[in-house]
Design a protein around this nucleic acid. Structure first.
Lengths: 339, 339
DNA sequence: CTTGCTTCCGCAAACGTTTGCGGAGCATGG
DNA sequence: CCATGCTCCGCAAACGTTTGCGGAAGCAAG
């Protein structure tokens, strides 16, 4: 039961006042060079570590930022958590990781808790139901940047994937290989990403002079189960699609299973393209072609933006929107259509 | 720029002293029922939220616990993060997630930072190089429980997978199907899990009266590259193994790739069993048989143990060791050996 | 020797809570 | 009517910092 050593102890050992000790350790040149050095030494010898609570109470700045995501299995969120954590730490911040399971209620509770903790900032993938809460946080001096998803009810700094372009590029890739009937398994249309990925798909189709067929798209949650359901539905048609475009990596897993169920071989019998890359896709067989949504870059940018606004000369929350470009990665799961 | 409402404001509005306000909101029956209700109401109306910093400073208890893992891509760590976070929150704690990349230096820094934040407890997968630091934390009243890996330099509460039994069960499963040459791809022998998984493998072999052949095992980091290298090495032998046992899910990815390189079909040409389950394995084709190391249960137990020691009537750090049983899940990637 | 300027440091207040101690009010029992 | 006990509340100190303000030295110039 070590009695933790406080600033008073350091000051007493150095025979100076607490204030001098504080200033010396802060090192802003507020004390003479000699006392500064001396106190640094004594503090080190005593093993002094400042109490962040007390400091935070006084300075109104814990160096904590909240990071809230839906889960950690989704690839975007996983890399988001990893790189944000790393970037923040490099700048002396700590990440407070929270998981909402995409549930507005949990999200609200989480945000409140984080506010109570007096986090300096917040990076969040919003559900879209707590805009007011977020906005008031941001307005009251705790910068909030949204990522991956946009909360449409409110104006906040947001960094997103270039989903329309990504989906466009992906379906266009399939079209160029001769595919005409392309099944799309996409996210719920209440979400930005769901809508945008669908719209990119449509645009590519229309440009190619192909009528949009709504029965070729299956929308649902980003889970393997929707992939499976969508796959079954699409495969049951008389005019079976020659290619499938799964709009996220988890639904692609379901598609894989669905194909296996019916003994449909990839890529011989059908082509599969997937939105979002994940290590397993590169390693498995056949390797899955993807359009990489740029989760890494997105995370980096989100961290950058927030850190920017965390600096002393903070610009007053510019509610900008940033887009991260997508990138097609060709592997083995798509091939030209046979005729 | 809202001026945050403090306890003083509530007290003033209710025309009582700050202390009464504090007690009323705490609700321990230290005030009359009526004032308690009245203050609850007023606090709610004013939107009062207690300042956790001030509270922590006074009570010497933030309700924060550090959670430090090597990364988030490894399945064990991912579910660890998810379930620990969930369990903690259910009890009113917040998780402070840190990532060390299995680097002792980053780990040391992380631990210090967490100590500075005055976390109430720590759940950590240790590198094994900062035992002293952890032990002193634990001794000074901040319970530390290790998970997944044991820090052998020191006595701390630890919850581990039953690796020897798991590996034993897995290779035994293969043996029962007639396999005699079983290639093992395993973790570095400096880690507990690496050694224990190897020892389980050996024991099963010896029980079956098969001589242990060190050239059949390939040890390395838990990464796809290790799996690939190991796979190549094992496949280059004249007497090629009839089954492969990949001792973690990431190396299994490498094995998959290695097999594909040489056009070796699963499970017709060779069997593959994998330690650690991961959603993709169940969905992909052929579905990979695994021995599930029980990451979920491990995480639950770790959280339980720590929470237990966090309770007021805290038992003085019992440095126990807990083991989580493994479970064989048969899917499609292993089959009886052909003769 | 006084004046004025610089450099360095100490005093004390403040941040927003919690909590030991004691006091006021009131009822109860002798 | 007094002693006693109980219930409820306020005073003030404390947790460990940071920081505005003022004062003590030191030194140079007049």
């Amino acid at each position: 039961m070590q009695t933790t050593v406080t600033l008073r102890d350091v000051a007493r050992a150095a025979k100076v006042s607490v204030s001098t000790a504080s200033r010396a350790l802060a090192g802003g040149g507020l004390t003479s060079k000699s006392t500064e050095a001396r106190l640094q030494r004594i503090a080190a010898e005593l093993g002094y570590r400042p109490n962040t609570l007390a400091r935070g109470l006084k300075t109104r700045s814990t160096r904590l930022v909240g990071l809230v995501v839906h889960n950690l299995t989704n690839a975007s969120f996983r890399v988001l958590a990893e790189v944000v954590q790393r970037r923040l730490r490099a700048e002396g911040y700590q990440a407070l990781l929270c998981i909402t399971a995409d549930d507005p209620e949990q999200e609200a509770e989480t945000i409140e808790t984080l506010a109570d903790q007096r986090v300096d900032g917040l990076i969040i993938c919003p559900t879209g139901h707590n805009g007011a809460l977020l906005a008031s946080l941001d307005a009251s001096g705790t910068p909030v940047t949204c990522v991956v998803r946009r909360d449409e009810t409110v104006e906040l700094e947001t960094v997103l994937a270039a989903d329309p372009e990504g989906a466009y590029a992906g379906t266009r890739h399939l079209l160029e290989l001769g595919h005409r009937r392309i099944g799309l398994i996409v996210g719920r249309q209440e979400t930005t990403s769901g809508r945008e990925r669908l719209s990119g798909y449509r645009r590519a189709l229309e440009e190619a002079g192909i009528a949009f067929d709504p029965t070729l798209v299956h929308a649902g949650r980003y889970e393997p189960e929707t992939g499976l359901a969508g796959c079954r539905q699409l495969l049951d048609r008389d005019d079976r699609p020659t290619a499938l475009f799964a709009a996220n990596h988890e639904s692609a897993l379901g598609v894989l299973r669905g194909l296996a169920e019916r003994n449909i071989a990839l890529p011989d019998d059908i082509s599969l393209l997937c939105y979002e890359d994940v290590p397993g896709f590169a390693w498995q067989r056949p390797a899955i072609s993807v359009v990489d949504s740029g989760a890494n870059a997105m995370a980096e940018l989100a961290a950058d933006r927030l850190l920017q606004r965390l600096r002393p000369n903070a610009a007053p929350s510019a509610a900008g929107e940033y887009r991260i470009g997508a990138r097609l990665i060709q592997r083995q799961s798509v091939r030209p259509v046979a005729h």
